[in-house]
Design a protein around this nucleic acid. Structure first.
Lengths: 247, 247
DNA sequence: GAGTGGTCTAGACCACTGA
DNA sequence: CAGTGGTCTAGACCACTCC
């Protein structure tokens, strides 16, 4: 279509109703059959419009139930600078727990810890390929819903004999344990991108076929990388916040 | 379908051929008609499979031409702190031009400028709903390819009579013009999320159907918001970089 | 003009959810 | 069970690209 396809007009109309609040969060949209009549369109066309809205993150389609205005982003991550600050660690707050506090969800997580040769990560850490890494693989949940996968890697030479090799890292989180050993955290870098989830991620995050946000964080002590944390979050329900002073 | 829908099987088969290199970058996939016969499926089903692959960023669909294996990612990297620094502005570099320099692509952009009542943005800027905003709608291109959509809004009271209301903002970019008026930039905040592109964005970015990164940047002068910039970038070809010193 | 993908129709049956 | 969305069919016409 040159001007606008019918499915786009349907999508735009519904989008407008959502934006203007005529349909508010959690409301059920008209059934597909109702939309067919209202817009004088075939079911295929109506569904194409609804898929547009789903991909845009505006609605959820629940098989056998209906189509609903999607809830707002569930987790807004705190500003990355503040959430990893020493002040927070001294207040015994691991980053994710602090967010739960601020945003009123009940946090939980499961952790697996193992050790493996550095391999491809050797160069990143500046260590031998055969040196062991401590790998902490976590699933974070908000009110029981998985909202983040995080795989954290640290050279084992700095984790040996610490709570970092245990399931519970203790108050203040992982960085607090490093500092107790005299490893001063000096800087962080996060690289953010987006991609479609693989089958495993889709299963863990459940249903929605939307994209995931992928973040790799590197943490330095001086010019030495002490932690690499690979995080995956559903893009529909997550916002990352970064703030900085003008320089 | 309980096991696997036919369109998913078709998608998986084609995905396998791409992964194994039987179809390599730039190759044309069989036409929809050929796929219908090969998989004994209706055209609708074949197209649903192809859309899956498009959303996964694996293929590009070109109207009137064919379906092709998508080219590999071109990664562009922005360090949001440095790219907006005063040092850069003093070197007469707008952020996007600086990136072009650093990464060796030829930049171009088209700009539309208009004015409109603040409406929903009034609260954000702390002004009246009827106050006018200056809206700068830009499409940024690298070597002719659109790589970013950016809609920037500023209160008209601070843009009136400046180059900010022109198509060309001049050396150092928009922030340099604000500083010339004695508006000191003190801080920035970026909120990042991801979603699937709408039909319009798909068309502009051309072909690839992967997710887009969505960034809303707010810029402050003291406790006053002076600019809100909404940016959309293809997730396949962008990485955002944020770095900060530990505090 | 020939061949491709983009949109649309009018039906059908299946799978899931909740009363 | 009734009602919802998920998948699929077999056609049709249109829009785009290239020769």
């Amino acid at each position: 279509m040159s001007a606008a396809a019918k499915y786009q007009e349907i999508a735009a109309t519904l989008r407008g109703q959502i934006d203007r609040g005529e349909l508010s969060v959690g409301d059920q949209l008209p059934t597909e059959q109702a939309l067919q009549e209202r817009f004088d369109a075939s079911r295929t066309t109506v569904r194409q419009a609804l898929k547009e809205l789903r991909d845009a993150g505006l609605v959820q389609m629940r098989h056998g139930v209906g189509v609903f205005v999607a809830p707002p982003k569930v987790v807004r991550r705190l500003d990355s600078r503040e959430r990893l600050s020493k002040a927070r660690r001294n207040a015994n707050k691991a980053a994710f727990l602090a967010e739960a506090d601020a945003q009123g969800f009940t946090p939980s997580s499961s952790v697996k810890v193992w050790f493996e040769p550095a391999q491809d990560f050797a160069e990143l850490f500046g260590i031998e390929e055969g040196s062991e890494l401590c790998v902490r693989d976590r699933v974070m949940r908000a009110d029981g819903e998985p909202v983040m996968l995080a795989v954290s890697r640290l050279p084992r030479e700095i984790t040996r004999g610490t709570a970092l090799e245990e399931v519970e890292t203790g108050p203040g989180g992982a960085l607090a344990r490093l500092e107790e050993q005299g490893i001063e955290i000096t800087g962080h870098e996060e690289i953010v991108s987006a991609r479609m989830p693989d089958a495993n991620e889709r299963q863990i995050f459940g249903l929605g076929g939307g994209p995931v946000l992928v973040v790799r964080r590197r943490t330095w002590s001086g010019d030495r990388v002490v932690e690499v944390n690979d995080m995956v979050m559903p893009g529909e329900s997550y916002e990352l916040r970064y703030a900085w002073d003008a320089v």
